[in-house]
Every structure is written in C-alpha cells, then in structure tokens.
Amino acid sequence: MKITVLGAGTMGKQIALLFAQHQIPTVLYDNQASTLARIKEEQQDCLHLQVENNLIAAVREADLIIESVFEDVAVKLALYEELLPHVQAHALLASNTSSLGYQALSVHPAIEQRLFFMHFFNPADVIPLVEIYAPTHIPYSALKEVLQLLEHCGKVPVRLKKDVPGFIANRLQVAILREALALLQSEVAEAADIDVAMKYGLGIRWACAGPFEISDFGGLDIWKNVFNQLAPKLAVDQNGASLLAAKVARGELGLKSGSGFYQYPFPEESLATYRARLASLARLKL
C-alpha cells in the first residue's frame, strides 16, 4: 500500500513518519516548500519518506490519502476537489479531523464514496489510539486493510458506530477538563494538585482499565450510588471557557508561548520530556 499524507504540520508530519518508519512508502505533501525542505533535511535517513510540493504528483499513485490540513471546512473541501480528478479509482480518502462532522465534508458524491475519518491522537507517532468512523458504503475489505496496516504500525484502532463531534477520546477529555476548570475556578485546589490527582490516581488506573471495566471491578451497585451522589454536583456549564479565554487573551498559550497554567522557560526540553514519558508508558501498555 502506498500512502500520501496531506499537510506537513505537527500531526501530518507525525503520521507520515509513523508509516515511513514502518517501511511503508509514504509521500508527505505540503504547499510550503520551506517546510518540506526542513523535514527532508531532518529525515535524511528515513528511506521510505518522500516529500512533495505538487499535489497531483503526491496523490496520483496513492492507495490511501490521509488529509491533515487546517481544521476548516472550506480549506479541506477545496483540497478534496483539487485532488479527486487525479486519484486512482480505488483510492480511499481519510480525514484526520478532530472536530468536524462527516456531513460537513461529504458534500459531493465523489468525496462521499471515498471519505472516512481516521483520527490520530497527538503525538501521532507515540499514542497508540486511532479512532475510525467509516460509513457503511466504504467497502469493508478496503477498511480491513487499513485496520491491519494500523495494527502493523503498532496502533490500536477503535471503530465508532456513529459520527459524533470529538469522537470518543476528545469528548471524554473535554468532560474531564470542564470539571478540572470548575475545581480550579472554585478554588478547591491548585492546578498542580489537580494534575497530580490525575497523574498519580486516575491516570494510572485508566492506563490499565477503561471506565466500564473499572465499574465492573468496583461493583455496579457501588458505582450506581457514587454516580447518583456525585453526578448532580458536577460542572454542567461552560464557565470554564472564560478561564481559558482570559489566558489566551493575555497571550498565555501554554508550551508554545512559554506560559499557560505553568511556566516553561525551556519549552523544547519540556516537550521532549513529555514525549519520552508518553513513549515509555505506551510501550508498557502494549
């Protein structure tokens, strides 16, 4: 199978490297030649990765095209319409969108007959999870080949039965963030202590078992009582968004700006440490 990844941003680059490092011929396309030149220089030893600044040349031999461009419907649709006349008859088109709905992107029959969602979790070359949503008209034989390819690359794909914004993981993540922001705004605890509770409590537990497994282990009768007592008291509003908005307005964007909920005097070192920890945990999990 030959793969083309569209978009050489953070996620697109990681996805392309994932496949190329598993000896799968991969083309990485971007309309910014300078970006591709930098990646080519960085990845000189990656023999299965090719960078390409010409869209038609990038897609015409691909069996699987993975789109990972800016999260904007108009941008994605314009790209699809430009490439579709030049792809192979059997080629599939996967979007790495994390928030857009299927109906928004499958506006033309030519797109719909090929399009499915394949959502990688950042960093894509480290986190095993890949969320898949494919409508029933996508041939199962072709989809099965994609799933086998992901497993070959060490990924753990999960299939959604319905198209929902945020898939599974991001919906759970935002629900947790909403409650964490509420705890912080209510001065129940400092941000660092909330993070500690997650990392050294729930995080360790959830690396071994999901919420339904944990409910079974604890006893559904027990969890019924816990749920009934706590659920009505949890945050259900969007007030936490104001805290995020205030930080963004002050230019406190997190690692990329050097400050967010924490200070990052050495952002690249902080990112490298984070990635190393993730990689270690991912190996342990698998």
Rank of each mutant, 00 (worst) to 15 (best):
T97K: 04
Q113M: 11
Y200P: 00
A134C: 13
F117Q: 11
W206L: 15
A182D: 10
L115W: 06
M118C: 15
S99R: 02
Y80H: 04
L93P: 09
L83Q: 01
E187Y: 00
Q113T: 13
T97M: 02
P135K: 08
Q173S: 13
P123A: 06
I168A: 15
Y200F: 11
A124K: 04
V174P: 00
P109S: 05
E112I: 02
L202D: 04
H137Q: 12
K161R: 14
E179S: 02
G101T: 09
A175C: 07
L147W: 11
Y140L: 10
C153H: 09
L100E: 04
A91F: 00
V126G: 09
L150T: 15
P128D: 03
L115P: 09
A192C: 03
R114P: 05
C153Q: 06
R205Q: 13
A191F: 05
D72T: 02
P135M: 09
E81P: 00
F121C: 14
S106A: 15
R171E: 14
E187F: 00
V130K: 08
L147E: 15
P85W: 01
V146F: 10
C153W: 01
V146Q: 09
E151G: 06
H119Q: 13
A169S: 15
Y102F: 10
L177I: 12
K155Q: 14
A110W: 00
A197N: 03
V107S: 12
V146L: 08
F116K: 05
S68H: 10
F167L: 14
D193W: 01
E145M: 08
E67Q: 12
G101N: 07
V73D: 04
L79M: 07
Y133M: 04
K199G: 02
K144N: 13
P165C: 09
V174G: 01
Q185E: 15
L77Y: 03
Q173A: 14
E145G: 12
R171D: 13
L181F: 10
Y140K: 12
I127E: 03
N122K: 07
Q173V: 08
E81T: 04
